[in-house]
């Protein structure tokens, strides 16, 4: 019996090999594009098939229908999110190749070694500065372009960086920061400006610790458009009678902004700040593209990649991923709590 099964297995393996190879080793543009179409059709087809089956059998029990609808998504989430997350938490208590249980050592290392303390300090800088600066700039911009003739165009300008990759943004800004000696012809715009006002040129990305700020600017540049969009919508939604009443009371300009606009859009401000903070916590591409985490600019998300896939220290990498996860939680709790409060008011 075993032999027959074994043989059958070999047969199947032998005869499906071309198919598997076609599915797994795509080379050449035509093959890749064909595979892409096959992949899409396969998934959409399987979904359609499940639905058709459920629909066909009129007497399908209710639970079967439910499983057909939510089953695939829940299975995927369990396989790709829940199980790996638990595995990572588990392996964060093990050594670099997972062979030995070492308790909290990875975490102790991450919090006590000066190399990682620097990483944590940088991450804190990012998470504090990016949301505040991006929101501030986005808010100011939303207010000054609101209801002007160029509103739509002006908004698109700030919004565009959101559509490009952080790798692309990193390159754009690396070029802004490009360094040449003071006496030489400059190619980076910022150093050119320094030369024009009579200062020495600067290694923006190399000089620590201020290089962190120059990386942070890139993220602010990307995220301000998001803040602007949400806040502009919130400002628009302020009821006109409130504005009118305030105006009759003699409120104008800055005072109007301080006492009417800000309190009215507070819930939107919270959403923007927390969303950007969460995005910033996980930022990796900018640091990777611009400094590779060198010159004292690494952040937790970058260090996670460095330890997991460069230094091949799976235990420490896992611990850093868990730290990242734990750092997100207070932000989310704050966000949810604020949502609750504003819903109660409503």
């Amino acid at each position: 019996m075993d032999e027959i099964l074994n043989n059958a297995g070999l047969w199947i393996e032998y005869y499906t090999r071309p198919v598997r190879e076609w599915l797994l080793d795509a080379d050449g543009a035509g093959h890749k594009l064909a595979l892409m179409v096959v992949a899409i059709l396969l998934f959409v087809g399987v979904m359609g098939g499940i639905l058709a089956l459920v629909d066909r059998s009129r007497r399908a029990p209710g639970w079967l229908v439910t499983v057909a609808f939510v089953g695939p998504a829940l299975a995927a989430i369990t396989f790709g999110l829940i199980y790996p997350a638990l595995r990572t938490i588990y392996s964060s208590f093990f050594n670099r190749n997972g062979s030995e249980f070492i308790g909290m050592d990875n975490y102790i290392q991450a919090f006590t070694q000066s190399q990682f303390q620097l990483v944590l300090r940088n991450t804190a800088l990012w998470v504090l500065l990016v949301p505040v600066l991006a929101t501030l700039i986005g808010l100011i911009y939303a207010v000054v372009v609101d209801r002007t003739r160029f509103e739509k165009f002006a908004k698109t300008l700030m919004f565009l960086p959101m559509s490009i990759s952080m790798v692309g943004a990193g390159i754009i800004w690396r070029f802004m920061y490009d360094y040449k000696q003071t006496s030489a012809e400059q190619t980076g715009l910022l150093n050119q400006l320094l030369v024009m006002v009579g200062l020495d040129t600067k290694q923006f990305l190399l000089d620590s610790p201020e290089n962190n700020f120059f990386l942070i600017i890139v993220m602010v540049w990307i995220q301000a458009g998001f803040a602007m969009t949400i806040l502009a919508a919130a400002i628009r939604a302020i009821p006109d009678d409130i504005v009118e009443a305030a105006r009759l009371d003699g409120l104008t300009g800055i005072k109007m902004f301080r006492y009417i606009t800000i309190p009215s859009i507070r819930p939107a401000l919270v959403v923007v700040l927390t969303t950007i903070a969460m995005a910033t916590l996980k930022v990796f591409d900018i640091v990777r593209t611009m400094t590779n985490g060198n010159f004292g600019t690494s952040v937790v998300a970058n260090e996670f990649y460095e330890q997991s896939f460069r230094q091949l220290n799976a235990g420490l990498g896992a611990a850093l991923a868990v730290i990242l996860f734990v750092l997100v939680i207070p932000i989310v709790i704050y966000n949810v709590r604020q949502m609750r409060i504003s819903e109660e008011i409503r």
Partner: peptide, 13 residues
Amino acid sequence: LQIVPIQITLIPL
């Protein structure tokens, strides 16, 4: 689950 950073899933996956 939206808040789970994908970093935490990468090595096991």
